[in-house]
Design a protein around this nucleic acid. Structure first.
Lengths: 118, 118
DNA sequence: CTGAATCCTTTTGGATACTG
DNA sequence: CAGTATCCAAAAGGATTCAG
């Protein structure tokens, strides 16, 4: 009796079904994918607390539309916190949530991998 | 004399200028961003060696256009290797390069983070 | 100052048919 | 079998204007 042997990866599968909504990797891509969100997280991470106008200036090239949209989605997904101070003129501050802070070290590894390999 | 104190992050900056072409994080996003590339890497990783037709069936929902385009770009960026056997009919096999294999553990962390936090 | 609303452009992805 | 070529649809992103 003959068998066709097929090697398979020896580590935990990267993703059984990344197309499925349950896949953690897909969730990450869906929430921080796109052109701007990681950049926004970068700037907030660097300063800990950032105002809307600062982000607008620091995230080089972003438009008002995209900044506002991205911030709203990031807040809805629990990645950033928004605090509004009703002074005149109004002041709004953004900071990372705890779970987002735990994402930063992984992004740092990704950054280093990109520097070394791309 | 008064100073405005401003907290800054105490760890290595996630990205000084992620908009700049030199940023490793931006490179990663540019190379494996998009809807399909990580899924393709997943499937190749799982099987070590995969044929075009297998990818077409395994990457759920992908079209010929996108599969072909993605594979060409992944190959151009040195993330996958393509081997063509001139049999009849022709057979083509894809596998991950060494540097891509070193990316997998980072993606696994990302996946776990997504499962725990999203 | 911090956005929302609208309209427009660009990019990405998809369907179908076809080739060596 | 492993793709290409063409054309089309959808989504992402951008410019401008306006508002609380």
């Amino acid at each position: 009796m003959k068998y066709t042997m097929r090697k398979i990866a020896d580590h935990e599968p990267l993703c059984e079904d990344i197309a499925g909504k349950g896949c953690g990797l897909k969730k990450v891509i869906d929430t921080v994918g796109g052109k701007w969100k990681i950049m926004i997280l970068c700037v907030i991470d660097k300063n800990e607390v950032v105002r809307y106008g600062e982000l607008s200036r620091s995230v080089h090239g972003i438009t008002n539309t995209m900044l506002a949209n991205s911030l709203k989605e990031l807040e809805a997904d629990g990645l950033v916190e928004r605090k509004q101070y009703d002074e005149m003129p109004v002041r709004v501050e953004y900071n990372l949530t705890e779970k987002t802070k735990s994402l930063i070290p992984i992004l740092l590894q990704l950054k280093k991998w990109g520097e070394d390999n791309l």
